Deep mutational scan, measured.
Amino acid sequence: MSIQHFRVALIPFFAAFCLPVFAHPETLVKVKDAEDQLGARVGYIELDLNSGKILESFRPEERFPMMSTFKVLLCGAVLSRVDAGQEQLGRRIHYSQNDLVEYSPVTEKHLTDGMTVRELCSAAITMSDNTAANLLLTTIGGPKELTAFLHNMGDHVTRLDRWEPELNEAIPNDERDTTMPAAMATTLRKLLTGELLTLASRQQLIDWMEADKVAGPLLRSALPAGWFIADKSGAGERGSRGIIAALGPDGKPSRIVVIYTTGSQATMDERNRQIAEIGASLIKHW
Rank of each mutant, 00 (worst) to 15 (best):
Q37L: 11
R92S: 10
P181V: 05
M153K: 14
T107N: 04
S264N: 01
D207I: 08
G242H: 12
L218R: 08
S254Y: 09
E145K: 02
E145A: 10
I140M: 12
R271Q: 02
K190T: 15
E62L: 00
A182Q: 12
P253V: 13
K252N: 05
I140F: 11
P25D: 05
G242S: 09
I244N: 11
I244L: 13
I259E: 05
G142T: 07
F58I: 00
P217F: 03
H94C: 08
R41D: 12
Y95I: 02
M180E: 04
S96D: 00
E56N: 13
E35Y: 02
R162K: 07
L74E: 14
M66K: 00
T262Q: 14
P181E: 02
I125F: 01
E26M: 15
L89F: 13
D113P: 00
D33F: 05
D99E: 12
T147G: 11
A133C: 07
G239Q: 05
P217W: 04
M153Q: 10
A235W: 04
L38S: 03
F70R: 04
M66A: 02
F149R: 07
P165F: 09
L219N: 09
D161V: 06
P143N: 03
L205Q: 06
N50C: 09
G226L: 11
S80W: 01
L146V: 09
G251L: 07
E102V: 05
V31G: 05
S201M: 11
T267C: 10
L218F: 05
L282I: 11
I140Y: 13
E166D: 13
I125V: 01
P181G: 05
A34V: 03
H151N: 06
D177M: 03
E46W: 12
N50A: 12
M115E: 15
G43P: 01
L38F: 00
L219F: 13
A40S: 08
K53L: 08
L28H: 15
N134F: 09
L188E: 10
S254V: 07
I244P: 04
A77G: 00
A211T: 05
H110M: 01
Q203A: 07
H24Y: 05
V117Q: 01
I244W: 11
K232Y: 02
E119V: 12
T112A: 13
R81Y: 05
S264E: 03
G43T: 02
R92D: 01
R159A: 01
A34L: 04
P253E: 05
S68W: 02
V214P: 14
P249Q: 09
N134E: 09
C75A: 15
M115K: 15
E26I: 15
S68Q: 00
A84C: 03
G141R: 03
I54R: 05
H285F: 11
R176F: 09
T179C: 12
D269T: 04
A200M: 13
R92E: 02
D250S: 03
K284F: 10
A40F: 15
S57D: 10
S57Q: 10
I93S: 05
E62Q: 03
E87M: 04
R118S: 14
T116N: 09
G234C: 06
E102I: 14
T138Q: 04
I140P: 12
K232S: 14
L38E: 01
E277W: 11
A34H: 00
G76P: 01
P143I: 03
Q274E: 06
E87N: 15
T126M: 00
T158H: 04
A200F: 08
E62I: 00
L100T: 03
E277Q: 12
L100G: 10
G234N: 04
L120R: 01
A266C: 11
I54C: 05
P217S: 08
W163A: 12
E277I: 11
P249E: 02
A124Y: 06
P25K: 08
S221R: 07
D36W: 03
M268V: 05
I206N: 11
A276L: 10
A185D: 04
K109I: 00
V101G: 04
M66L: 02
T131V: 05
W286V: 04
A211C: 05
I93G: 03
T107H: 04
R59M: 01
A266H: 04
S68M: 15
E237L: 10
G239E: 09
V42H: 13
V31W: 05
E87K: 03
G85W: 15
K30G: 15
V214W: 06
K190D: 14
S254F: 02
F70L: 03
F58Y: 00
L188D: 14
I45Q: 00
A211H: 03
S68T: 02
G90L: 06
G194T: 12
V117L: 01
H94K: 07
V82C: 07
T138D: 06
T147E: 05
P224L: 05
E175T: 13
Y44F: 07
I54E: 14
A280G: 09
R118D: 15
T69H: 04
T262E: 14
L219D: 13
I283L: 09
W286R: 02
I283K: 11
S240F: 05
L199G: 10
I275F: 12
E119T: 15
C121S: 06
R273S: 10
I256T: 07
F228H: 02
A133M: 00
A124I: 11
T69W: 01
D99T: 13
Q97G: 10
I171D: 02
I275K: 13
